[in-house]
């Protein structure tokens, strides 16, 4: 029943701490994986901070949930798209981001241009922004 498969894109636009949206968005991605749709996860605007390497939110009494992103390939989420422009605006490069290895050792974290991201968004059946 592949015709019923939907392309679902989760768009993370907020910093990982400060509000609960990022954490609870990840819960949705994990819970939604059981439906085996075509899922992609996008990090845009302050959302790129969610993948920042070397987080230490323990000083804020928060758990470092960035480790959970590492489990996404096991849930058949093969692409974690990072908007390159958002990254550059925040003085970051790919080296500042965590790696999310797939089974074949390639990195699921993929930089994408705003133009390519907008055409990718256009191809989705469902876009959920958090």
């Amino acid at each position: 029943m592949d015709s019923l498969k939907k392309r679902i894109m989760y768009v993370n636009r907020r910093a990982p701490y400060g509000t609960v949206y990022a954490l609870e968005a990840l819960d949705v991605v994990l819970a939604g994986a059981v439906f085996e749709q075509e899922v992609s996860v996008v990090f845009l605007d302050d959302g790129v901070y969610q993948l920042r390497r070397g987080q230490n939110p323990a000083v804020l009494n928060m758990k470092d949930f960035s480790k959970t992103f590492g489990a996404l390939p096991d849930f058949d989420v093969m692409y974690l798209y990072v908007d390159e422009e958002s990254l550059v605006q925040r003085g970051m490069t790919a080296r500042d981001l965590i790696e999310v290895p797939r089974e074949d050792d390639t990195d699921a974290v993929t930089l994408i241009s705003s133009t390519d991201l907008s055409s990718l968004m256009d191809q989705q059946d469902v876009v959920l922004q958090f």
């Binding site: 949705v28 439906f35 469902v126």
Partner: peptide
């Protein structure tokens, strides 16, 4: 929350 995702698969449009 999977119940919501299931809804978005069944529905024609998901509005947030």
């Amino acid at each position: 929350v999977g119940y919501f995702i299931e809804g978005s698969i069944i529905a024609d449009r998901t509005i947030v």
